[in-house]
Amino acid sequence: MALEPNKQAPDFTLNSTPDQRLALRDFRGKLVILAFYPADWSPVCSDQMALYNEVLPEFRRLGAELLGISVDGVWCHLAFSKDRKLRFPLLADFEPKGEVARMYGAYRPGDGVSERALFVLDREGIIRWSYVSPVGINPGADGILEALEALQQGRP
């Protein structure tokens, strides 16, 4: 089961490109959206990432950074990101495969991919909102926007 609100988001360090690693703790002081998704190139994931790419300016206006995470490797991420002109990092939860997804309770062992799971973290790295979408359904951006707005306004 996916980690629920009010828990500290487990820290991790993953490659975003072949020679760049990102650590979650580096984002302290910012709101963070973690978007776990099953696979680069799959139709639903492509639509979801394309949507977030368009909504990105609004996420940033609300003070949030977006990180996409799947079990795909860095070269796959690089090609996908370039093809779709994505303007946010994709992290490779590749080795050990799905380890970060497992920490967040968002791994699908039978399928070998992560859930389509969203987490919004506050400036201290506490999970404030999470949502696991049915794997075939693009959850849209409304839940994330609502969670970010609530955090901006200091609502619980």
């Binding site: 979801q48 394309a50 849209g140 951006a141």
Partner: peptide
């Protein structure tokens, strides 16, 4: 329009 869509759950 775009933001109202994003807030309303437009997903594509």
């Amino acid at each position: 329009d775009f933001l109202s869509g994003a807030r309303s759950g437009v997903n594509g």
